[in-house]
Simulated assay, not measured.
Amino acid sequence: MAEEFNIAHGTKEEQYKALLPQLRALVTGEGDLIANMANISAVLKAQFDFFWVGFYLIRANELVLGPFQGPVACTRIAKGKGVCGAVWEQAKTLIVPNVDIFPGHIACNGQSKSEIVVPVVAKGEVIAVLDVDSEYLNHFDEVDRRYLEQVVTLLELD
Rank of each mutant, 00 (worst) to 15 (best):
I7A: 03
I7D: 00
A8W: 00
A8T: 10
T11Q: 03
K12T: 14
E13A: 15
E14V: 01
E14D: 09
K17D: 07
A18E: 07
Q22H: 08
L23F: 09
T28R: 12
E30Y: 09
L33G: 04
N39V: 07
Q47V: 09
R59S: 10
R59I: 05
V64Q: 12
V64I: 13
G66A: 11
Q69A: 15
Q69S: 11
G70I: 10
P71R: 06
V72G: 01
A73L: 04
C74H: 03
T75H: 14
A78T: 11
A78S: 13
K79H: 09
G80V: 09
A86N: 11
V87E: 04
Q90A: 13
T93W: 07
I95G: 12
P97Q: 13
D100H: 15
P103I: 10
I106V: 13
A107F: 12
A107K: 12
C108L: 07
S112V: 05
I116D: 04
I116S: 06
V118I: 14
V118N: 00
G124M: 09
A128L: 08
V129R: 01
L130E: 01
V132F: 04
V132W: 02
V132E: 02
N138R: 04
N138E: 02
F140H: 01
E142I: 04
L148C: 08
E149V: 05
E149F: 04
Q150A: 14
V151A: 09
E156Y: 02
E156P: 04
L157C: 10
